[in-house]
Design a protein around this nucleic acid. Structure first.
Length: 104
DNA sequence: GCGCTTATCGCAC
DNA sequence: GTGCGATAAGCGC
């Protein structure tokens, strides 16, 4: 896999609606440890609707979002979308995260 | 229990 | 060749 990004998108696309995954989970799926690279690749997000970067959260269930820029423009709106899918996000954290945590 | 530091991997400059 | 970045885990206080 030359394109790390593409691999991330592919894995993320496998995540079913109403579930969330973590950077570590994706990195693990890719058999790598570049947790940070995963998010950075999601930042590019050329497959916006197909690669829901908002569906990816930290290993703790917190959105993390953008080094703390969350409240303002990026993730916040998408959180509402997540709630529409069945993923409830409160205070920037996924509810029942450990239950909807998707794992390959 | 909370906070800070170190470790890790790939990509861009 | 060096630095940086949507994290993670460990150690310290």
């Amino acid at each position: 896999m030359t394109n790390f990004d593409e691999a991330v998108y592919e894995v993320l696309r496998k995540v079913p609606r109403g579930s969330v995954t973590t950077y570590k989970n994706i990195a693990n799926a890719l058999n790598t440890k570049a947790y940070r690279r995963v998010g950075t690749s999601l930042k590019n997000n050329p497959y916006a609707p197909e690669v829901p970067c908002h569906r990816v959260v930290k290993n703790d269930g917190s959105i993390g979002g953008f080094m703390g820029h969350i409240s303002g423009s990026t993730i916040t709106k998408k959180i509402e979308l997540l709630k529409s899918e069945g993923v409830e996000v409160i205070n920037g954290k996924v509810v029942d995260f450990g239950k909807i945590c998707w794992r390959g």
